Amino acid sequence: GGATEATYIAIEQRIVADQDSAGAYHLALLAQNTPDLPIDARQLIEMVVNKGDNQQRLALLKNLLLPPVDMIKEQILASNDGDAIGLMNAYLQINPEGYGSQHMLSSGQSDQIVPLSPGN
């Protein structure tokens, strides 16, 4: 049962066609935890970083196993959003490499996957 390979490909194509950064975020997280999915997670992650909002970027930073820290940092700094910059700096201070929430859990930190709020 479950979704077929063609289903995941169709979902990815729709997300890319719509430039849906929230959908890209969720599918990238799914791909991270399901390595044999026939999708290009890098493309989805880049879409979130380049087209998403700071909440989505911060969620990527906290939830990907190995997030593109420099790309995310650059976009958040460029936004001049003081709140997002503060949250990012606080997170990177305790986790400078940006290892995702699964690493934080294994190191005794009480972090979890941070959902995007509804409507994003």
Rank of each mutant, 00 (worst) to 15 (best):
L44G: 09
L30S: 10
L77C: 00
Q55H: 15
L66A: 11
N33D: 14
L61H: 04
L60K: 06
L58V: 02
Q43V: 15
P35Q: 07
Q75M: 06
M71F: 12
A90L: 00
L61K: 04
G86Q: 01
A31H: 05
L65E: 13
M47I: 14
R42N: 13
P35D: 07
K73F: 01
N33G: 14
A31N: 07
L37C: 11
K62A: 08
G86W: 00
A41R: 11
E46L: 12
L27T: 10
L61P: 04
Q75D: 02
L61I: 02
N33V: 06
M88K: 06
M47H: 11
L92V: 01
D81T: 02
L64I: 03
P38E: 07
Q32G: 13
Q32T: 06
L58S: 01
I39W: 11
R42L: 10
L77P: 01
M71D: 15
P67Y: 08
I45W: 13
N54D: 15
N50C: 12
I39K: 08
I72F: 12
R57Y: 00
E74A: 07
H26Q: 14
N80W: 00
E46G: 12
N33W: 08
Q32A: 09
Y25R: 03
I76K: 04
D36W: 10
D53A: 11
T34R: 14
Q56R: 02
L64Y: 03
E46R: 13
Y25F: 09
L92N: 01
L30R: 14
S79H: 11
D40I: 11
L65A: 10
